[in-house]
Design a protein around this nucleic acid. Structure first.
Lengths: 337, 337
DNA sequence: TTGAAAGCGCTAACAC
DNA sequence: GTGTTAGCGCTTTCAA
């Protein structure tokens, strides 16, 4: 059978409590005892039983990660990073999908009350500040674009990231720039884009702001199709608030005979792996997901400890990744017909 | 505090054991008592404490799902389905990534010995039959293309699915068909494709079998590029053993001036959400992932109960999903230049 | 600084 | 059919 605390204690010639003290890094243990104990642990290959520990401590050992969809590679890789970060805190991660639906997000928030979990990391799309009344004292941290006054938050500076995306488009020679995104979780990105245009003496006319009701390829394609049918003069570049949107936008553009990036440059946001298999490969913004995951777990631990923890909003880094879709002169050939 | 078993028992006026019996669906309980108990459970909102239960039962309450990469939407949605299916058996799913590396897969197999988990669902790419010596008696079920004699397996009939894909290409008028995939996990798909060609009096000449060392867009693009540089006469269609490969193949084709599907039809395998944002949208094979997940969990439960469970290999269904990339006459326009 | 012992909430013999 | 009770392996007062 697996060795237990008692086995380690016997081997080290100390009491159970002493072993427990060593394992939990309690102060006031003589270096000598500590060494004896760690040696015994090593020799026996002892690993604590999490069920027993959690039972004794009154925690469940599980945190929930709520994301819109796991089959969006952005959230998938975020999930993996979170699983890794949570492991260090002896937490299993239960992944839940909200499909971006408000009802599902509220439901998760409500589950906060039944004490079946130790904490929650939530990436909401439709939650409002007032919904947080639903919340209990359970450790909670939000990801994503929206910040809530009363809840910890970890995320990139979306406005700044969008700004650098638009900046990149400007630097590659585009002036007339359309934005696909918002309203919704993508607001900050639209705001950042608009601000940058304005800072350069440009504008985001209503005709060039293409709102979407979702962030998938279909939504991007429909938005761009609607624009193309509107008869407005073409933009030289399109900034999309997600890569998936951008794929749909490119599809619509090409179906209407426009070359990307030669006729229209397209910029995405998220850095998903398929960007590299697309034609053209997609220029994008890459958030530092590992850091986001690390800090989210850190937030939960902090809240777990304190009774009335201070609310913290943390900003993590991002990177601009220029690829073919915004190249100054596109390598994309005509299709032979 | 959360109600405990004892609270329910008191409320129902019975003993703890009786409540436990009801909860665990033991036989021989009078309908009357059962009703009293369920009522009490309802009123108190009782939910069993999993840590306590697992501790008492000697299980950990956790199973591992090992997949190559979670940011491949195929595995992401499989993971979600598995999480749902596992929940019904009171299991948390710990997702682990192997990146398709043999070392990582062996490591997971080895973890089977430390009894930190109750079971494992593994989707291996590089494991060999002989590696299974590493395995302990822990419940284990394999997914994916490869079947192992001594281990439960759940999956679609890859050869048959590949056959129907090739059949579809033949029915849409293509005769000269290339196959991108193998060696490796994709072998069965190549086998199925080859068999179907042969059944139609056709052949898969060596020049038209493009092997790959991975299943990503990059691999597909490189394989197709190499072919295009070889000077061999062009195929009328390409069957790729994954959608991601297909995206890369399409990229290479178009970079060389070929139109899809008008010059060359392309067929994928997996049914990932990005297929719909691609241009052209990708025809593919959609495995029944929900069924795969359900049966994988069922297999673990079966093994958990029995001492020497019979090995079961189970086949689940798949669907052919024809889209633009194999349309008889493609709707893809030329790019305006 | 270390030890003894009482739970944490549930399951499973074993008796009734 | 139903009740009693001894653990499951760990944490944590409270003494020593």
């Amino acid at each position: 059978m697996r060795p237990r605390l008692a086995d380690v204690a016997a081997r080290a010639g100390v009491s159970i409590k002493t072993v427990s003290n060593v394992i939990n890094d309690f102060p006031h243990i003589s270096t000598q005892t500590r060494e004896k104990v760690t040696a015994a642990i090593e020799e026996l290959g002892y690993r604590p039983n999490l069920s027993a520990r959690n039972l004794a401590k009154g925690r469940t050992g599980v945190i929930v990660l709520g994301v819109p969809r796991l089959d969006m590679p952005y959230f998938a890789s975020l999930a993996m990073q979170l699983i890794t970060a949570a492991e260090a805190a002896s937490w299993w991660v239960q992944i839940r999908q909200t499909r971006g639906e408000r009802a599902a997000e509220l439901e998760l928030l409500a589950e906060t009350r039944q004490s079946r979990i130790d904490g929650m990391v939530l990436s909401p799309l439709r939650l409002r500040e007032s919904d947080l009344a639903e919340r209990s004292g359970l450790p909670l941290v939000m990801l994503g674009e929206r910040r809530f006054a009363a809840v910890d938050h970890v995320g990139i500076d979306n406005a700044a990231a969008a700004a650098s995306a638009v900046q990149h488009l400007l630097e590659t020679g585009r002036r007339r720039i359309a934005v696909v995104g918002g309203p919704g979780r993508t607001d900050r990105r639209v705001v950042g884009a608009r601000a940058t245009l304005r800072a350069h003496g440009l504008d985001l006319p209503a005709a060039l702001h293409l709102p979407v009701r979702g962030v998938t390829g279909r939504h991007g394609e429909e938005a761009m199709k609607a624009f193309l049918g509107s008869g407005h003069p073409m933009p030289e570049a399109v900034f999309c608030v997600t890569d998936w949107l951008a794929m749909g936008v490119i599809r619509a553009l090409r179906l209407h005979g426009f070359a990307v990036p030669d006729d229209v440059a397209v910029m995405g946001f998220d850095d998903i792996p398929y960007d590299l298999a697309a034609l053209p490969t997609l220029s994008t913004i890459a958030p530092d997901r590992e850091e986001i995951a690390r800090l989210a777990v850190a937030s939960l631990r902090r809240q777990e400890g304190a009774t009335a923890p201070e609310v913290q909003h943390t900003v993590v880094g991002h990177r601009l990744v220029p690829r073919e879709s915004t190249a100054a002169t596109g390598p994309v050939p005509t299709t032979r017909r």
